Amino acid sequence: MKIESAVILITSASSLLGRSLAIHYARLGARLILCDHDETNLMKTVQLCRDVNDQVHSCVLTSCQPKAVEAILDFVQETYHQAPDVLINHWPNVVLPSFVDEAASDQFVQQWSTLTAHFFLFGYGCAERMRQAQNKGVIVNVISYSGAMELNGLVSASSMVSGFTQSWAQELTPFNIRVGGVVPQLSNEPHHSESLHYDELTRHTEYIVANEYFSGRVMSA
């Protein structure tokens, strides 16, 4: 897919990786819709993107409910008069409780349900809009983490991304919608550079979007 002028929706755009993704695609000339719960930091990302590209809009995600996601997709339609060409379905990994912690079950269920709901609702909503428009589309599922404390949940989150990516790709291939995934490499060693780490993840998403033959697979960086 040609990235220049493509309509790209990026979730969690106020986070460190979300900001890296947004600025990268702004420089490539995409038309962007950036969304997040955190309006203050979302607007910081928007301003950085508008320094290089004026086709950047923001939309605050008000809740983890289907209506809130549909409102964002309606905003994309109203702004660019089309469905998204690309969804960068990015969500920062959450710190999951230890399996042996007291009351771990309640905490796990709450955090895991929030993470999976975000991934599913945006993926499902965008796929439905792409199918209705009968245009080629791309969904890239991405997770990130910002510290070693989150590594205990990375294996579970990576498995979720891999499962969603493979199953969605099988179902959406007949509709010319590709699905790929990007996850951080599993390691107990600190990354040599956090910014370099985000750059690698960002470049992997670009490869998936641009490569017409990539679907149903997950890349790691």
Rank of each mutant, 00 (worst) to 15 (best):
K2I: 06
E4H: 09
E4I: 08
S5V: 01
V7L: 07
I8N: 03
I10A: 03
T11D: 02
S12M: 04
S15C: 07
S20C: 11
H24L: 00
R27W: 00
G29C: 11
G29V: 10
G29R: 04
L32A: 05
L34R: 05
L34Y: 01
H37D: 04
D38C: 02
K44V: 13
T45M: 03
T45N: 03
V46I: 11
C49F: 03
R50H: 04
D51N: 13
N53Q: 06
D54E: 09
Q55M: 12
C59D: 02
V60Q: 00
C64A: 13
Q65H: 13
P66W: 02
K67H: 14
E70N: 13
A71E: 10
Q77R: 12
T79E: 03
Y80G: 01
Q82C: 12
Q82G: 07
P84M: 09
V86D: 00
L87I: 07
H90G: 04
W91T: 15
W91Q: 14
N93V: 15
N93A: 15
P97C: 11
S98H: 10
F99E: 08
D101S: 15
E102R: 13
E102F: 10
S105L: 13
F108M: 12
F108Y: 10
F108I: 08
V109R: 12
Q110T: 12
Q110H: 09
H118Y: 02
F122Q: 00
F122R: 07
A127E: 01
A127R: 08
E128V: 15
R131E: 14
Q132P: 05
N135D: 05
N135L: 14
V138N: 02
I139Y: 00
V140G: 01
V142P: 00
S144M: 05
G147F: 08
A148P: 08
L151V: 15
N152F: 04
S159P: 07
S159D: 11
V161I: 15
G163D: 13
F164S: 05
T165F: 09
A169P: 04
Q170N: 15
E171W: 09
T173M: 06
T173F: 05
I177P: 00
G180K: 05
H192G: 11
H192P: 00
S195K: 07
S195I: 08
H197L: 12
R203S: 09
R203M: 08
H204M: 11
H204S: 04
I208L: 09
I208S: 01
N211Y: 03
G216A: 10
G216S: 12
G216T: 12
R217E: 11
R217L: 14
M219Q: 03
